Amino acid sequence: MQRGAVQTTGASSIAYQAILQSHKVQYLETDDFFHRYALNSPAQREVRLRTIIDCDLLVLDDLFLARAIPDDAGTLLQTLIHQRYKLRRSVIVTSNRVVQDWGAYLGDNTMSTTILDRLMHHCHLLEFDGRSYRLKEAAEALARETNSN
């Protein structure tokens, strides 16, 4: 990659292309979003929730990255997914956690089933198995540095 070039992968590339086609996109790094949302006033939460529900494409990136989510985040996630499902709005979820473990991360197997039921109905599930591109890039950079010395 050239210096100064912007690298996008997966969900962020799809979000970017949607924006270029004039779609309204909300891209959320989920751990950060859940924590920030909890700090908002009820009025701010309602405005934020409406924006997320009404957009054309919602990207929930790195869901359960930290494994534990704030207590109310499971209910918020269920609300987002349910409302967008009823409106037939697109959702992209990225996670390095297997769906069988989502109940443990949410602390509620029934809620997990409800969320997954709506996400997986009419979905395209892409599962990747392989090395992290970040680790690959770091190894390549280290090799270049070692070879130049």
Rank of each mutant, 00 (worst) to 15 (best):
G107A: 03
G4T: 02
W102A: 01
N147Q: 12
D108H: 03
Q100T: 15
G103A: 04
A143G: 03
H122P: 09
S132L: 08
Y16M: 02
F64L: 09
Y133E: 14
T79P: 01
H121M: 06
E46G: 04
I69G: 04
C55K: 01
V25Q: 05
Q78K: 11
V93I: 07
S41H: 13
L135N: 14
D108F: 02
I52Q: 01
D61K: 08
A15D: 01
V47P: 05
V25I: 05
C123Q: 13
I53K: 02
T110R: 13
T75A: 14
K136C: 11
H121G: 10
V98I: 13
R84V: 09
L58C: 07
S41R: 11
D31V: 07
N109K: 05
Q17K: 15
Q100M: 11
E46R: 15
R97K: 10
D129V: 08
A139N: 15
S95C: 04
L65G: 04
L20I: 14
V59T: 02
L20T: 09
T110A: 08
R134K: 15
S41L: 06
T51P: 04
V93T: 00
R134F: 04
R45C: 02
L116D: 04
R88F: 11
V93R: 03
L126A: 14
H121D: 13
L142Y: 11
Q17I: 08
V99C: 08
T30N: 09
Q2C: 07
R89F: 06
T79S: 10
Q17L: 13
D117A: 06
D108A: 03
H122E: 15
V99W: 14
I81R: 01
F33W: 07
Y16Q: 07
C55V: 03
E29K: 08
D71F: 06
P70T: 07
T51A: 09
Q78F: 00
R88C: 07
V25R: 02
Y133C: 07
M120D: 09
I14K: 02
V25H: 00
D62H: 13
Q2K: 13
C123S: 15
S112R: 00
R3F: 02
M1V: 08
R36M: 06
G4E: 00
L77E: 03
K136D: 11
V98K: 15
P70G: 04
H121E: 14
R97C: 06
R88H: 14
Q44N: 12
T8K: 12
Q78M: 06
N109F: 04
F64Q: 01
M1R: 05
Y133T: 14
Y105F: 02
R50G: 04
R50P: 10
Y16F: 05
L119Q: 12
G107S: 05
G103D: 03
H35T: 10
Q26W: 04
L20A: 14
A66V: 10
V91A: 03
D117C: 12
R48I: 08
R134M: 09
L28C: 08
D117R: 13
Q26M: 12
L135A: 15
L60H: 01
Q7K: 07
F64M: 03
D56M: 06
R131A: 14
L20E: 08
G130K: 07
L80F: 03
L49A: 06
D56A: 04
V6Q: 02
M1Y: 13
P70E: 01
A138R: 10
L119W: 04
K136I: 07
N109A: 10
D56H: 05
